[in-house]
């Protein structure tokens, strides 16, 4: 198994001391040094090519390596960005993560014409494939639907059974993208979220609609919040895994927060959805052992989403990987 660290450990959107510094190139240069110091030699990158959505605009213009345009402007080119990573001791990019939510956010920020959604999803994926090819990396990981509360508001219109049509069109876009990606040496996989139309084990039926070459990149916290057993999911899909996101949570969604349009920022009840790796209740060691037993040779991508202290989270992750999750018995 190969180990990477996700840049999504850095939460860019919400408030805090020194938060705007996270938008500068200087922060990321230092962050990559922290990543390497914590013993990670690969990273997974989030990807968002849009700039009309106000938050995407703010994040994409000053140094966060979030898109081809951002990388070209601040790091020269994808190739030069890889060289910069290598200087710090980060030899690999495990993959790039795109989220369908970002395509819908772009539409809602402009003309609100949801008829453009699937075209925008496709163009986002196509751009990310090109970026991966330029980076010399191979894994495009797609979160395939926006939050179900938002999708229902934008596409449901109170109609019975609208979800099936929406998912059929999603599958068609992903199948088309996967074929184009293959021609560029990139493989496509889908990731689950506890708030998507494909939450928990609902993704299983969707995978059956996809070309066999499209793989699954499970996110363990999201599975746990959705009530699925992460270890059982890994075992059930062991022949179709691309990468596995190891992260942690002790969040119990007792108020049905997953149905809202802002599921990762709950208003009622408990609000801390994710926690630092090892602070929660996900059976991370069990998951690791299941992958080892299956002879999994793909990427394990670690993160501590929404951590309150990034450098500490990186060090905590390394210690917990070495001394708990992947420790020899």
């Amino acid at each position: 198994m190969k180990i990477a660290c996700s840049l999504e450990t850095v939460e860019l959107k919400s408030s805090g001391p020194s938060k705007l510094r996270l938008l500068s190139k200087g922060y990321w240069i230092e962050f990559f040094q922290w990543v390497a110091a914590a013993g990670f030699t690969a990273v997974e990158l989030p990807y968002n090519p849009f700039n009309n959505d106000p938050l995407a605009f703010e994040i994409g213009r000053c140094g966060v390596p979030i898109s081809l345009a951002a990388v070209n402007v601040k790091y020269g080119s994808p190739k030069q960005f890889r060289q910069k990573l290598a200087e710090f001791g980060i030899a690999d990019v495990s993959g790039v993560h795109v989220q369908a939510s970002d395509a819908l956010a772009e539409i809602l920020a402009t003309d609100g014409d949801t008829a453009r959604y699937f075209g925008l999803l496709e163009s986002m994926g196509r751009e990310a494939v090109g970026f991966l090819a330029d980076l010399g990396s191979t894994d495009l990981v797609v979160s395939p639907t926006p939050p179900m509360g938002l999708v229902e508001r934008c596409f449901g219109g109170g109609r019975e059974g609208w979800e099936a049509g929406f998912l059929d069109l999603t599958a068609a876009v992903l199948n088309k993208l996967a074929r184009e990606a293959k021609a560029k040496g990139v493989r496509l996989s889908v990731r689950n979220e506890f708030w998507s139309l494909l939450r928990g084990t609902a993704l299983d039926a969707f995978l059956a609609k996809l070309d066999k070459e499209i793989l699954y990149s499970p996110d363990l916290s999201h599975l746990a919040i959705a009530g699925a057993d992460p270890v059982a999911v890994l075992k059930a899909h062991q022949g179709r895994l691309a990468s596995v996101r190891f992260n942690d949570t002790c969040f119990e969604d007792v108020v049905g927060n997953y149905r809202t349009s802002h599921p990762e920022i709950p208003i009622q009840g408990a609000q801390r959805v994710f926690c630092d790796l090892g602070d929660g209740s996900v059976d991370l060691r069990g998951a690791y052992q299941a992958l080892a037993a299956a002879g999994f040779d793909g990427w394990i991508v670690f993160d501590s989403r929404m951590t309150l202290d990034v450098p500490r989270a990186l060090l905590r992750m390394r210690w917990r990987i070495d001394h708990a999750i992947a420790a020899k018995a």
Binding site: S15, P17, A270, R272
Partner: peptide
């Protein structure tokens, strides 16, 4: 920051315990 996360943080301890920081 770009977005203040919550209207109201319901439980102070949810964020403090285990982190002991000022976030």
């Amino acid at each position: 920051g770009l977005m203040v996360r919550y209207p109201v943080a319901n439980q102070w301890g949810e964020w403090y315990e285990g982190d002991f920081g000022n976030s």
